[in-house]
Write a protein that binds this DNA or RNA. Structure first.
Length: 512
RNA sequence: GGCGGAGUAGCUCAGCGGUAGAGCAGCGGAAUCAUAAUCCGUGGGUCGGGGGUUCGAAUCCCUCCUCCGCUACCA
């Protein structure tokens, strides 16, 4: 059982045969926001991402590139590390399936499952297409050919099998006991109904290629993809050293965030493997949706693949992070639209949030000599606004617990709206002449509210939030969630503030 | 075919037994501290169709229509 203050979150490991695209960027971004949130909330976080580097396709791609597979994966894995830097992700570890620590863990897991009697040697048979390098199910064939039109042949090869069929009832019990094991709920239903209909044993070794982890005691076999890939979640914790610090602290994982295409592997196979090896299943698996591009399905052949680097260049990093997390309820499919991206950047970030900061800080500069004003007695309106700011964290916590990132952001923007209304209602530009002390109190209340907002948006927009906190001269040590609320810190009256400059510029169309 | 989900304002969606809502877009107004940014006002939509339960249904039940997801070893 993991430590109570620990929080372990993972992305899938990404297959290196692919170039990083918006799908990869999105999954890791969501994890990053959650990981940052939990860290600021005082949790001991372990945030893992990495690359999946074994398999026939990689072996072949390396051969075609005239490279040794290891040298090849060293190179392509770097593209995913680069994405980490460009998107400002904050992983605590980056695992590669070609690392010794991983290979050791996979073989140990295999050995344990074998010792427990869950693995047996059998024969894998199916329709194989040499051209596609893939097996097809009988039901997939079209007129005796692969769906791709490629000819297929009946192939049998010796293979080790995992007794997945034996785990049906244990899995169903797991689901029954933990209705939040899979999110969103609709995915949970899919998983349950899949398992309910019965499970077949799983072929978990291959003899048709070499680039993988050898089966312990039978080096003719390579351990097949999913056993290899899924194990990354524990090999990164030092498995098989289950008494080690990392493993004891962080396993079971709090949440595996994945794309909906690999749900079954995570919600069915993975817990079965773990149970087979006497390990605890993860606490939760959350499957998010896919992006379309301007209403169109994204595909290489359509040429409408979205490159995260291009988004960052065009719209800005925090703008991109914000849009991706706010536009779509996390878990659902979403449509990427330039028009709505611009609308959110200009209306929500520039006008609502950025301009709130700018108008308040400008008034403080002009009316209060550029120093944090000293509040007098707080009026009911002031208390009301502060109460909203103070209460925001708890609301966000509730949403973050269930990976409702969009809702967490909604909460922040509710407070931003409230603050803008308060500015208009109080009209400090009028008060400053009639009642300067009252004006100071109003501006202090606003500055405090903005301090809360900036700390609360740190997980989502780290750099911009830091800039706002800089403008408020908030010390680095007072930027986590302990600094929030009635029991937290406050701005110190008299502190000199730097000259404010806009944090979220409006998006202007680049010249044609 | 089976299981699951969805059909509510121009668009995206919330509401899930008690006189139809939010955001965006549109229209009108106020303000002028601010990145011409803000604020206020403004919504006659058969809540997919039909039937039923109920004092009362978008909300429960039945049925039909349409759309989507899952229905095994494609990284």
């Amino acid at each position: 059982m993991s430590a109570p203050d620990a929080f372990y979150i993972t992305t899938p490991i990404y297959y290196v045969n692919d170039v990083p695209h918006i799908g990869h960027a999105y999954t890791t971004l969501a994890c990053d926001a959650i990981a940052r949130f939990m860290r600021l909330d005082g949790r001991r976080v372990h945030f893992l991402t990495g690359t999946d580097e074994h398999g026939q396709k990689v072996e072949k791609a390396a051969r075609e590139a005239g490279m040794d597979p290891k040298a090849f994966t060293d190179r392509v894995s770097e593209r995913f590390r680069e994405l980490v830097r460009v998107m400002d992700y904050s992983p605590d570890d980056f695992i590669r399936t070609t690392e010794d620590r991983h290979v050791r863990a996979v073989q140990a897991l295999w050995t344990r499952m074998a010792e427990n009697g869950w693995i047996y040697l059998g024969k894998y048979a199916g329709w194989y297409s040499v051209r596609d390098e893939a097996y097809y199910a009988e039901s997939e064939l079209v007129d005796g050919r692969a769906p791709t039109g490629a000819p297929v042949e009946w192939v049998e090869e010796p293979s080790y099998f995992f007794r997945l069929s034996a785990f049906r009832d244990r899995l169903l019990r797991l689901y029954a006991e933990r209705p939040d094991f899979v999110g969103p709920a609709t995915r949970f239903n899919e998983v349950v109904s899949f398992v309910r209909q019965g499970l077949q044993d799983l072929s978990i070794s291959r003899t048709t290629f070499r680039w993988g982890v050898p089966v312990p005691g039978d080096p003719d076999h390579v351990i097949y993809v999913w056993v290899d890939a899924l194990t990354n979640y524990i090999s990164a914790l030092g498995y098989p050293d289950v008494d080690g610090e990392l493993f004891r602290t962080f396993w079971p994982a709090d949440v595996h965030v994945i794309g909906k295409d690999i749900l079954r592997f995570h919600a069915v196979y993975w817990p079965a493997f773990l149970l087979a090896a006497d390990l605890e299943p993860p606490r939760r698996v959350f499957a998010h949706g896919w992006w379309t591009n301007e209403g169109q399905k994204i595909s290489k052949s359509l040429g409408n693949v979205i490159d995260p680097h291009a988004l960052v260049r065009r719209y800005g990093l925090d703008q991109t992070r914000y849009y991706l997390l706010r536009e779509v309820p996390f878990g659902q499919d979403g449509d990427f639209r330039h028009e709505s991206m611009v609308r959110r950047i200009n209306h929500e970030l520039a006008n609502d949030y950025g301009n709130l900061v700018q108008r308040v800080l400008t008034m403080i500069r002009r009316y209060c000599d550029g120093r944090v004003p000293a509040p007098g007695e707080l009026a009911a309106d002031d208390e009301a606004l502060l109460a909203r700011a103070h209460g925001c964290l708890d609301a966000m916590r509730r949403h973050m617990r269930e990976q409702a990132l969009h809702r967490a952001l909604d909460e922040v923007f509710e407070v931003i709206g409230e603050a803008n209304r308060y500015v208009d209602a109080q009209a400090p530009w009028t008060l400053r002449r009639r009642d300067p002390k009252r004006a100071a109190t109003v501006l202090w209340t606003l500055a405090e509210t903005i301090r809360h907002l900036a700390i609360l948006t740190r997980p989502f927009m780290p750099a911009s939030s830091a800039r706002i906190l800089d403008l408020l001269a908030v010390p680095a040590a007072e930027r986590d969630f302990r600094a929030l609320g009635p029991g937290g810190r406050t701005l110190r009256p008299g502190t000199a503030l730097p000259e404010p400059t806009p944090v979220f510029p409006r998006h202007r169309e680049e010249p044609a």
